[in-house]
Design a protein around this nucleic acid. Structure first.
Length: 230
DNA sequence: GCCAACGTTGGC
DNA sequence: GCCAACGTTGGC
């Protein structure tokens, strides 16, 4: 099996959690066909047709979770924070290890050039640390076939791979870190009185490691950078 | 370390 | 197709 993502640690949140990898940019020959990008929304082999599965909802902004602190899973350190991404060659990496269908399907909807927040999860101070750009659209996550990888999936076969990943590139740190505690205050306020974060997936689908953001959510989050912490 | 929320598995 | 048991996520 070709391995388009030669370097890297695979540590992004798996499914609802994470994993990523690092990679130098990759060969365009491995770009998936368009049929491959048709996303199923759930584990069902025959999901109900929904706006999302038909890709009618075109999200342009994303939030992706990864763990910035060491934690061992099957003997492999899952640590992959924004500083780790920044330190890689080309400041880019593949986002491998996602093992949740909903998260995978969102990755399959991502387009080159779109922006994603890098979210630090399962750590002392969870929150939004910075911004990245999607630099390669969904392709086969080779770590699913690697027995030594923390996210090896014995049920996935090379002739019909289950899991995909994208490549991301560091763009910048947030002007200030946006802690989850602060985002939650906004979420609760907006839920009570209306506002852009009232339905934010970070709070309504807490275990989802790759999430779409509406334009309103994205703009509001960016605007927080220039405000005093709530 | 606890545990609530929620996704997955597999028996029936 | 239901649903109990089990596993995982991730904040606290």
């Amino acid at each position: 099996m070709l391995n388009p993502c030669p370097s890297s640690p695979s540590r992004l949140l798996t499914g609802t959690a994470q994993s990523s990898k690092i990679t130098a940019l990759v060969d365009r020959r491995f770009l998936p066909s368009s049929g491959y990008l048709l996303a199923l929304q759930t584990a069902d082999s025959n999901p109900k047709p929904t706006a999302e599965s038909h890709n009618l909802t075109q999200h342009r902004h994303w939030l992706m979770k990864s763990e910035p602190e060491s934690r061992f899973e099957n003997g492999v350190d899952m640590k992959f924070g924004i500083e780790d991404l920044k330190a890689l060659p080309g400041q880019s990496s593949c986002w491998d290890g996602v093992r949740n269908y909903q998260a995978r399907n969102f990755m399959r909807q991502m387009k080159e050039g779109q922006l994603a927040f890098f979210y630090h999860s399962n750590c002392k101070e969870p929150g939004i640390a910075g911004l990245m750009t999607i630099v390669k659209e969904a392709y086969v996550d080779h770590t699913q076939f690697d027995k030594k990888d923390a996210h090896f999936d014995a049920s996935s076969k090379p002739d019909n791979p289950k899991w995909s990943m994208v490549d991301v590139q560091y763009q910048r740190m947030m002007k200030r870190f946006l802690p989850l505690s602060e985002l939650k205050k906004h979420h609760l306020q907006h839920r009570a009185h209306g506002g852009p974060l009232k339905d934010m997936a970070l709070f309504t689908k807490t275990r989802l490691s790759v999430q779409p953001l509406t334009a309103e959510e994205f703009d509001f989050l960016l605007s927080l950078e220039d405000k005093e912490p709530l």
